[in-house]
Write a protein that binds this DNA or RNA. Structure first.
Lengths: 153, 153
DNA sequence: TTCGCTTGGTTTCGATATGCAACCAAACGA
DNA sequence: TCGTTTGGTTGCATATCGAAACCAAGCGAA
């Protein structure tokens, strides 16, 4: 499990809330997007994001502290690199769902946007779909949160 | 498409960035979580989230403005309700991916958390998986972002 | 019908976070 | 060797957040 120092959870029992506490910030999510895209250096993130250096510095520190990135110091001194941990790479599904929702809902029919390609085939990556336990597609109203210690009615 | 007034996009061509601009905020995401869970009233959100009223008021206004929620005024005066639009319900996959990443990465082995149940079977909702265009599971390093107007190398 | 309570906010104000710009040391590169 | 790039830190003005007070409209019970 992640071992971040001093997070006090907004809603400790809810996995959605714990995730938003850890990575639910615009710059954090975009740093993860770039990391998944292969970027590793401070300057690469800075150029890609256009974020202020102090904010980038802060977010990288938090991401390392939270076990999403590893800082790999350059043996010759400064200029370390930042690499995703397993937990960080596991955010791929989340970033993909951000991307696909945006593609479906945040662009006009005439607006172009970047696309994610499966490099083994050159084809676009297919849509994610939630499935129910029976294997059929799952709608939100067919799912229910069960709190810890609670029995189904 | 969503028609929010006056968003100026952090990175206009990137669907991930557009989505984070629209919903990439902790309280916004938790309001959507609660909406998907059936909550509709100001007081329900307030009680569930423990958020300051002015912030909740602001986020609800933004969500309505951005086409994620519809405000349904109470004909008898105040106390309107907030209902997800189609674009809002389409965030189910995103919230589910937040939940599942949190379940995998943000809890110790001995920590309990709420779980999402498929009500038609009573079983937990299965994990989301990204698939490549060939139908096999897709790893992050097998996917590549292609910017608009760019050809594959 | 009146009176107290609840709801759904808005306002105020101090604390916190953000972002721009300047600065800087180390390393790189010509 | 000397100027440039990198990877930051610091200072400061501004914007955002959040706790608390306030408030008007409904509601509920007497």
């Amino acid at each position: 499990m992640l071992q971040p120092t001093d997070v006090d959870w907004t809603d400790p029992e809810c996995p959605v809330a714990r995730t938003t506490d850890l990575v639910g910030d615009k710059w954090t999510l975009l740093i993860i997007r770039d990391s998944l895209d292969g970027k590793r250096r401070f300057s690469e993130f800075e150029k890609s994001l256009g974020v202020a250096k102090n904010i980038l510095s802060d977010r990288l520190r938090l991401l390392v502290d939270r076990g999403i990135l590893t800082r790999i110091p350059n043996p010759r001194g400064t200029r370390s690199e930042y690499e995703l941990t397993d937990a960080g790479r596991d955010l791929f599904t989340l970033i993909l769902s951000l991307r696909q929702w945006g593609e479906r809902n945040a662009f006009g029919p005439d607006e172009r946007h970047s696309v994610l390609i499966d490099t083994s085939t050159g084809q676009p990556v297919p849509q994610l779909h939630p499935f129910g336990s029976g294997g059929k597609e799952l709608d939100p109203q067919e799912a229910q949160v069960v709190k810890v210690g609670q029995q189904l009615p």
